[in-house]
Simulated scan of single mutants.
Amino acid sequence: MKILSPYALGATLYMPATRADLLDVVFRTKLPELRSLVVCLEDAVADIDIDTALSNLHVLLSAINDRGGRSGDGPLLFVRPRDSVMAAVLNDWPLIKHVDGFVVPKLTMRNLGSWEQAVTNPELFLMPTLETADVFNPVAMVELGQALRANLASRIIALRIGGNDLMGSLGLRRNPATTLYSTPMGYVIPMLAGVMGSQGFALTAPVFEQLATPNLLGEELDLDIAHGLVGKTAIHPSQISLIQEKLRVSLEDLNSAKLIVSDVAPAVFKHNDVMCEPATHYKWAIKILERAEWHGVRVPEAANGETTIRLAEAAQ
């Protein structure tokens, strides 16, 4: 089985399986900057349109097959089945080989066994979505994380945080003037970052559904990244470039990470007026280097427009 980095996801765009332009996105005729695409058969498709959506998905996969498969530089392609019953059917489609994996909606300990039985194709990666009331209980999340590690850890790219569903379970909706961190998600996201992150899982950030406030999206992305989240769901193509720009690594962090992982790094050293300790910062450095590999580096500019690079100061 191939290995997929969670940082390869970038901005993840969900598109209903009923859309007629899915093939254009898969082959980058549309949205060439997109890193990952989810063809949705769940919330984005009405009950009366399920058969149409499944037929359209089959047409998409047949067209990909007719072209000899997806191109290597196209977006990652995932399908979100409606439930484990639908997933079991899709799991056995021969053409599902053209999909990287499934997004698992509303995963809990109660339905985990059904999903394990449904998605038996070892080539399909999984991105479980945490979006039920159980998510507010850290004990339940510890239990779920342990169960996922036991049987599915090698197939899980990342866990997705379903912010809208979680807010909905409380009868709440985001205030358009604040980030999600000013809501009960300000408890949930740090808790999940700790509980699931400490078990080795990457997590992606909830969608930002306000299209008229890109500056606020930028603020929320800064908080997402500060909590170690590796990507973010995009509600609209206009958000893709901003999300992926924010995921770029600062030059200062890149230089610091390179020094920390160096075989000749001192036990403690100073870099740009910050103390670095490889014994405690090594995992952070590895993640920074992986993020930079996928998203690149932001080079700061001085007031005169020239790039500025600060040199490392290592204490011997």
Rank of each mutant, 00 (worst) to 15 (best):
P190G: 09
F201S: 02
Y181W: 08
A205K: 06
T178D: 09
P190N: 12
A177E: 15
P184N: 08
L180V: 10
R174F: 04
E209Y: 00
A193D: 01
V188H: 12
R174I: 02
T213Y: 13
G197M: 01
M185Q: 06
E209M: 04
A205Q: 00
A212H: 12
P176N: 12
L203N: 02
M185W: 03
F208P: 04
M185P: 08
L172A: 12
G194T: 07
E209P: 06
I189T: 09
I189C: 02
V195N: 02
L203K: 01
T183G: 01
Q199A: 08
G194C: 10
G197Y: 01
L211M: 13
F201R: 08
L192S: 02
L172M: 15
R173Y: 09
G171P: 07
P214F: 11
G194F: 07
M191R: 12
V188C: 10
Y187G: 03
L203S: 00
A205E: 00
R173A: 12
E209C: 01
R173H: 09
V195S: 11
M191D: 11
A205L: 05
L211S: 02
A193L: 06
T179R: 10
L211P: 03
F208K: 08
A212I: 06
G200V: 12
S198T: 13
P190F: 02
P206V: 05
A212Q: 14
Q199P: 09
R173E: 07
L203C: 06
M185T: 01
M185F: 08
T204N: 00
L180N: 03
M185E: 00
P206G: 05
S182A: 15
L211H: 03
P214Q: 11
P214D: 05
P176R: 15
V188S: 05
A177Y: 14
V188N: 09
G194E: 13
T183V: 05
R174G: 01
T178A: 13
T183D: 13
P190Q: 12
G197R: 04
A202K: 05
A193M: 07
R173Q: 10
N175I: 04
L192C: 15
P214R: 10
M196T: 14
P176V: 05
A177P: 01
I189M: 07
A212S: 13
E209L: 04
L211F: 07
G200M: 15
A212L: 08
L172K: 11
Q210P: 04
T204D: 09
M196P: 11
A212N: 13
L180A: 14
M185A: 04
T183L: 02
V195C: 04
P184V: 03
L180Q: 01
L192V: 04
M185L: 14
G186N: 09
P214A: 01
P214G: 08
V188T: 11
L180F: 07
A202I: 05
S182D: 14
R174Y: 05
F208T: 06
L172H: 07
I189R: 00
I189S: 01
P176I: 02
T178W: 10
A212V: 03
E209V: 11
L172C: 10
P190E: 05
G197P: 04
Y181P: 05
P184A: 03
G200D: 08
L211T: 09
R173I: 08
